[in-house]
Nucleic acid binder design. Structure first.
Lengths: 138, 138
DNA sequence: TCTTGAACCTCTAGCCACTAGAGATCGTAT
DNA sequence: ATACGATCTCTAGTGGCTAGAGGTTCAAGA
């Protein structure tokens, strides 16, 4: 049994975040000492590691909630879990696509400036003021 | 002179968002009718278009604030504006990089499942539980 | 001129996933 | 026994809006 600080160190999840996860129902309510401090065992450690890994991969708290539920009901869990992962993947791909469009536009705008600093018309500002100067929609 | 609703239609920025921008200082306080309703002219329209375009490109409210200040002080503005745009570009590129790592990992995890749905060990759940199964850090 | 009714006003609260801080209590080492 | 770091709960703040309540104003039609 170890403290929340120890759990935090081992998982690299900050202490208030652990409490937040408990409040959100991602972690079961921890056992307490006589003095009301939380104590954890390896089960808690594993669950928090799972949560952290999923968060790192961009899964929402809600999605993680679903995944945790699925862990507890192994029948049909794989299909549903794969769905959630696939949806997360689609999300990530959509974000990449959008960001690539932005990258193109921003690098075009940035390059447009001659770096002179003395020109009375700044291409960056002009581009932002007038969407017509853009290559694509974004 | 036109109403906030008209401005909203022309810029495709929602009415509460316009009020929010005013509160945040991105838009100057609008003139008012005798009955306290906001009225705008083309100057307001242009500034809001600028803001919307910059937001679409992912600039933060704070960055836009700086850009607007620069508009009003044309000396040295180009250098500073280019800096802000470059920093935004770097941000976007960093995000793309991170998302690409996630994409790889997620597609690997998703493919790991045989789609059977009957296997007692779900690869998605196993992968999330054990970071050691991952190819890379993320 | 009067009456609708859509558009407007302000204010508060909610979203997500935390983060920060106050002020009090606990646990452990000396 | 004391010190002091770790923990507790609670509230509020972050960014960039969005939603809703409850009240007022504007403009068009009768």
């Amino acid at each position: 049994m170890f403290s929340i600080g120890e759990l935090s160190k081992r998982t690299k999840v900050k202490v208030p975040t652990i409490r937040y996860y408990e409040e959100m129902g991602l972690l079961p309510e921890a056992e307490r000492t006589a003095g009301n401090q939380r104590r954890y065992d390896t089960a808690g450690l594993e669950r928090l590691s799972f949560i952290r890994h999923a968060r790192d991969l961009g899964f929402s708290i809600e999605a993680i909630s679903s995944l945790i539920e699925l862990q507890d009901h192994p029948d049909r869990s794989c299909e549903a879990a794969t769905d959630i992962a696939a949806s997360q993947l689609a999300d990530v791909r959509a974000k990449i696509k959008r960001l690539k469009t932005l990258e193109k536009e921003l690098s075009r705008i940035s390059k447009g400036c001659d770096g002179d600093g003395m020109s009375e018309d700044c291409y960056v500002l002009a581009s932002l003021a007038d969407h017509g100067l853009c290559d694509q929609e974004h």
